[in-house]
Design a protein around this nucleic acid. Structure first.
Lengths: 156, 156
DNA sequence: CCTGAAAAACTCACGCG
DNA sequence: CGCGTGAGTTTTTCAGG
């Protein structure tokens, strides 16, 4: 019920550290230290605390898919015909590397997936040969992203 | 038309480097060097090349929103009533920090947004007081993510 | 792509308030 | 407890081959 704060306090310094690293994960800790005016060792201590608390779930290099020829993002609403075998369908979706997100959702569909593919021909191939062929998938509705205007993490 | 490869070749070593850093952006370069068996300096050279080419668009710390009390993800299809003022509506959406993604899409809606909020009450507040009040927004359809099963980047 | 040396950053144990 | 210091280790950077 309550937020998952197990006596976990994030003060202004923690926020500054996190905001900085959320922008650039490879910035030297000592550079952050100079900005927030505490020692590098103290930053390391706080980072260990934040990692242990689970607030930090990792770090990533972000690659630009367009440079690899992936130009098309689409959202696909998927209707499954037997709720009992949903987990199996998800398992199959995981095997399709172009499926970047998959959500069980309320509303019309059973799941909503986000896929990244090279072009419309690739999208059609994925739909016909990878998605529609999965056992349990009865119907799909596709929404192609023409342009992504916002892409960010939550503000802390 | 063609992929954006300006005489850009990514060999197996580049892929190994990228795959490693996509998993953990703060791993020491020298540790990668030991795995792929070339010198640290060579890895740095390749990374500079990859950054200059635009394949690497940055690095991020990933934070776990649940630990901050953000438990609810929802997708909202937004109908805009005057295409001419779409950019203004997008501008307003950018001001709502809970809006993490925003895509112009084909299909029923003009835009599809992904939002992250604390709970259903927060979601309702955002819909009524932040989204629906934006000039140009005529109607919305909300799909709550009950559970996210897949969340990843493209495979390289 | 490598070497090798200098600079910088990280780690760790200890002591302070 | 969280913070700082300083020594020792590791990584990053840079020049030259």
């Amino acid at each position: 019920m309550k937020p998952k704060n197990k006596n976990l306090t994030i003060d202004g310094i923690d926020k500054k550290i996190l905001r900085t690293l959320m922008e650039d994960a490879r910035i030297p800790i000592l550079e952050i230290a100079r900005n927030v005016d505490i020692s590098g060792a103290a930053i390391h201590q706080r980072l260990r605390k934040l990692e242990k608390s689970g607030i930090i779930s990792g770090s990533k290099f972000v690659i630009n898919p367009k440079m690899l020829g992936y130009e098309t993002v689409a959202f696909i609403g998927v209707y499954l015909d037997k709720a009992i075998q949903n987990p199996e369908a998800i398992k199959q979706l995981k095997k399709v590397p172009e499926v970047l997100e998959c959500h069980y959702t309320t509303g019309n569909w059973n799941v909503l997936i986000k896929i990244l593919c090279k072009d419309n021909a690739d999208l059609m191939h994925l739909l016909n040969n990878e998605i529609q062929t999965i056992s349990g998938v009865s119907r799909t509705e596709t929404f192609i992203s023409l342009d992504q205007q916002i892409d960010r993490q939550i503000t802390i």
